[in-house]
Design a protein around this nucleic acid. Structure first.
Length: 376
RNA sequence: GGGGAUGUCGCAUAGUGGCAAUUGCACCAGACUGUAAAUCUGUCCUCCUACGGAGUUCGGUGGUUCGAGUCCACCCAUCCCCA
């Protein structure tokens, strides 16, 4: 694998890069649709690939481990073969589930005891077995096992949690280096910066993560409820510490505006459930603003969903019809909305890249932000 | 013509003396940031100085009662059975 910067913006920290994997090239900055269970909810692989040209998608270790399970995934020949997606895949380690499933897990020094949300069965995740699991899933990019701290978070908790994440990282790196890919293509490991919203901890964590000299680096523990300015502040702080020549991944972010602002701070990779989950719930992101498709005001709006949109659904369907589909709870509604939103997110990061290459990124970004946050 | 039953906030329901009144649906609005989410929350009689206050409500009219959706009388409407 290879990551190279094609251009760095003169007026911000934004960068345009080329990330080459055995499953194809990723042009950064990039947005990665989330496909937790091995499927981007409500979206066909064909539409993801041919229509909106997603370059990489996510999967989740915790979910895939529980179902369908490692035996199935291994026999299938890995997740790519199993779900028919032949472009890159990144798997989250389950670190986020340590946070989101706080009610059904027990945190220990050597790992996390999870109680399955599906059948209540107990499972123990360790840095080592999480690496093995991700080897078996066959993700191109593997995430270190971490603890995503909540917000707010006491200093001492954040400090101890960060230390635990670092200890686990050592174990992850060792296990990763002592094992081989299972399906004949390369895999890389990304460690994750934690430290909550404490400057000294974040700095310390970023330095530690950078010292491991992994292929790329990720920032976790943000966008968990803290004020948005705080998220930018800490993204900026961490980016200033992380090496410039390696890809930077801001986990779980975010709104279209969040993404542009974070690109300006030096982030290359994003993932977020927002375009798919909010899409399923009737929210559409467009270049003119945000639409709540369920609102009565679209009842008789027979204009296209998004006249600037690049997906076939944007011109194929009208707002009135899509609202009708949501009202009637037709399955087609979340499908259309998800595809539209993902198309928009990918268009947005693609445009960001174009403007970085053209040298007018900041100007373009500042022009876009007010539109992105408008409520139509 | 005779007998029986029922009328509650859009629809459907709960409520047999303290009730602006249960629940579901619909409607309207909001939330959602490494997915326990095709989910969740709020509003849903009217008005206001709106985590509070005021006014009008349970087919109609009258009555009993400190107090009535609830009890009584009559009326109206609907449904069922027998002619």
């Amino acid at each position: 694998m290879k990551f190279e910067l094609a251009k760095t913006d003169a007026h911000s920290q934004a960068r345009a890069g080329v990330f080459e994997t055995d499953h194809g090239t990723i042009l950064t900055p990039i947005f990665m649709p989330v496909g937790t269970l091995g499927s981007v909810k409500a979206v066909h692989q064909r539409d993801l690939k041919d229509d909106i040209q997603a370059q990489i998608i996510l999967g989740n270790t915790y979910h895939l481990y529980l179902r369908p399970g490692l035996e199935v995934l291994e026999q299938a020949g890995g997740l790519h073969k199993f779900n028919g997606w032949d472009r890159p895949i990144l798997t989250d380690s389950g670190g986020y589930q340590v946070y989101s499933l706080a009610g059904t897990r027990k945190l220990k020094e050597d790992g996390v005891m999870f109680q399955s949300h599906i059948d209540g069965s107990r499972h123990f995740f360790t840095p080592e077995n999480v690496m093995d699991t991700q080897r078996t899933i066959g993700a191109d990019i593997i995430m270190a096992f971490d603890e995503c701290t909540p917000y707010p978070c006491e200093y001492n908790y954040a400090k101890n949690s960060m230390r635990l994440t670092h200890t686990w990282l050592d174990q992850c790196v060792a296990q990763f280096e002592n094992t081989e890919p299972k399906y004949g293509y390369d895999q890389v490991l990304f460690p994750i910066v934690q430290g909550s919203v404490y400057k000294d901890l974040r700095t310390q964590s970023a330095e530690y993560i950078a010292s491991k000299n992994c292929f790329g680096n990720a920032i976790g523990g943000l966008s968990v409820g803290e004020p948005i300015e705080m998220m930018y502040e800490f993204t900026d702080l961490v980016c200033r510490v992380l090496p410039k020549d390696k890809p930077r991944y801001l986990m779980g972010v975010g709104t279209p505006a969040n993404i542009l602002e974070s690109i300006a701070l030096g982030i290359d990779m994003f993932d977020c459930v927002m375009p798919t989950r909010n899409g399923r719930n009737g929210m559409l992101f467009t270049s003119e603003g945000i639409i709540n498709m369920k609102n009565e005001k679209w009842k008789k709006d027979f204009s296209p969903i998004d006249s600037n949109g690049l997906s076939f659904v944007d011109s194929q369907y009208t707002r009135a019809y899509l609202r009708h589909l949501f009202q009637a709870q037709e399955m087609l509604a979340p499908m259309i909305a998800s595809l539209h939103n993902l198309a928009f997110y990918l268009w947005l990061v693609g445009q960001a890249r174009e403007h970085i290459l053209a040298g007018d990124f900041t100007e373009w970004k500042n022009r876009m932000i007010p539109k992105l946050t408008t409520r139509l």
